[in-house]
């Protein structure tokens, strides 16, 4: 990682850390900023799969939801330590991700996507119908987690800084990974999986590895969610949520890491604002996505490379 990259990251981190000091930042906007950064981090972790490895996961909502349930179950049982909640999420999501990735990475393309979707739907249905976890209403009204005994993460500001630290660590993890030999093999798999295999790389193991990293980062993000919202419900694992994660990655820009963060922030803010004015807000979001895919194929991050209509028609 170059010094210039690190310096840029430090500036971005400092800018985001200063966001709560902006004059208009009410508690509500801090909560919205929490959501924006959390979903941005999830989109970034998904970018490892879609953007760098060429694997489209339609099941990331299950990792997110499982992480949320792990925390919610702990908090509901008065186990309020953030670290225990995170550890529980890592174990639960890790085991599930091992299972999913073992089977899904044996296939490629649409079959990989379908397997991740099917596994996620099974998990969703399990939680939807299991009364131990609150059935369709999920686990609600959980207390705030504690960073240390007596230090509760009970304000929007504390939660904002928590998610900011997570975003920074997640970016560092992803950036280190894609800049390493491991990351270059992932790109090789994306470009030509057969050739990567002929070169002697155990492609399946690489794919499993990146699936695990991506799933764990998403799971940890999920583990932070009940602390802010007070609940975990099966709706968090619905396939439409996985679809939203993919949209965030595409809006931001595939294979860029920072792009999906921007895509996540953009999507959350757009959804929140538009839905206050238009009932069928997904039409607006869909239209934005269509325009971005057609005319900004590099996503928001590539906003300098906006294509003209003629260029798009010619397929250049």
């Amino acid at each position: 990682m170059s010094n210039r990259t690190l310096a840029g990251a430090a500036v971005a981190l400092a800018a985001l850390a200063a966001v709560p000091a902006l004059p208009f930042m009410s508690k509500y906007y801090l909560l919205l900023a929490f959501d924006a950064l959390l979903f941005g981090a999830i989109a970034m972790s998904l970018d490892l799969l879609i953007g760098y490895t060429g694997l489209v996961s339609f099941g990331h909502a299950a990792f997110f939801g499982l992480g949320a349930y792990a925390t919610a179950v702990c908090l509901e049982r008065k186990i309020v330590s953030l670290w225990i909640c995170l550890a529980a999420a890592v174990v639960v999501v890790g085991l599930y991700a091992l299972l999913v990735s073992y089977f899904a990475t044996a296939r490629r393309g649409i079959y990989f996507a379908l397997l991740t979707l099917i596994f996620a739907e099974v998990v969703y249905t399990f939680f939807r119908y299991t009364q131990t976890f609150g059935g369709s209403d999920g686990i609600q009204g959980v207390p705030a987690a504690e960073l240390a005994p007596g230090v509760a993460l009970d304000t929007p500001l504390k939660n904002y800084y928590l998610v900011l630290v997570f975003l920074a660590l997640a970016w560092l993890t992803c950036r280190t990974l894609v800049g390493s030999h491991f990351g270059r093999v992932l790109v090789a798999i994306r470009e030509n999986e057969d050739r990567a295999r002929f070169l002697g790389y155990n492609v399946t193991r690489y794919k499993m590895g990146v699936c695990l990293v991506s799933a764990l980062l998403t799971g940890v993000a999920g583990a932070l969610y009940p602390g802010r919202s007070g609940f975990a419900t099966p709706d968090l694992m619905l396939w439409t949520v996985s679809g939203e994660f993919i949209i965030m990655v595409m809006i931001g820009g595939l294979g860029t890491l920072v792009g999906p963060v921007i895509g996540g922030v953009f999507f959350v803010v757009l959804q929140e604002k538009v839905s206050s004015y238009v009932d069928w807000y997904f039409i607006v979001i869909g239209l934005v996505l269509v325009l971005i895919v057609l005319f900004m194929p590099k996503g928001l991050l590539g906003f300098r490379r906006v294509q003209g209509f003629a260029q798009w028609r010619s397929g250049q």
Binding site: G8, V11, A15, Y29, A33, A36, V265, V269, L300
Partner: peptide
Amino acid sequence: MRAKTLVPVVLALAVIALGAA
């Protein structure tokens, strides 16, 4: 993260301010 990538992040967060009249 390059400085130019910071612009859309900050812009997106600034959109949050809409409606805060």
